[in-house]
């Protein structure tokens, strides 16, 4: 159990980008865990629990993001976050309806 930050790179494959529903799902996952999670695009860093800030990253399809997690369950949280960038929300495979 390390307290150092783990960083993972993800590519946004959801054709709608990181949209409102993704942002809400990300925030929910992070709040359930103990790790502090930051999303990074280029030089912009935002806390993963702040939906509005996550949206302002404007992560469009095909773009690359870094997810930085720090805490006892960092790896587990990152595992849960990753599919969200592909638009997979567990029970449904479709992205949020337009």
């Amino acid at each position: 159990m390390s307290e150092t930050a783990i960083t993972r790179t993800v590519v946004v494959t959801d054709p709608a980008g990181v949209h409102a529903r993704t942002a809400v799902a990300i925030a929910e996952v992070v709040r359930r865990g103990q790790a502090t999670v930051t999303l990074i695009k280029d030089y912009q860093r935002v806390p993963a629990t702040e939906v509005l800030q996550v949206l302002t990253l404007v992560a469009e399809p095909g773009e690359t993001l870094q997810i930085e997690a720090q805490g006892p369950d960092a790896n587990a949280v990152l595992d849960q976050l990753e599919p969200l960038f592909a638009g997979q929300f567990g029970e449904e495979a479709q992205p949020f309806a337009k």
Partner: peptide, 9 residues
């Protein structure tokens, strides 16, 4: 869900 997003924003 969209209102959940609004709420959090």
């Amino acid at each position: 869900g969209i209102f959940e997003a609004h709420l959090q924003m």
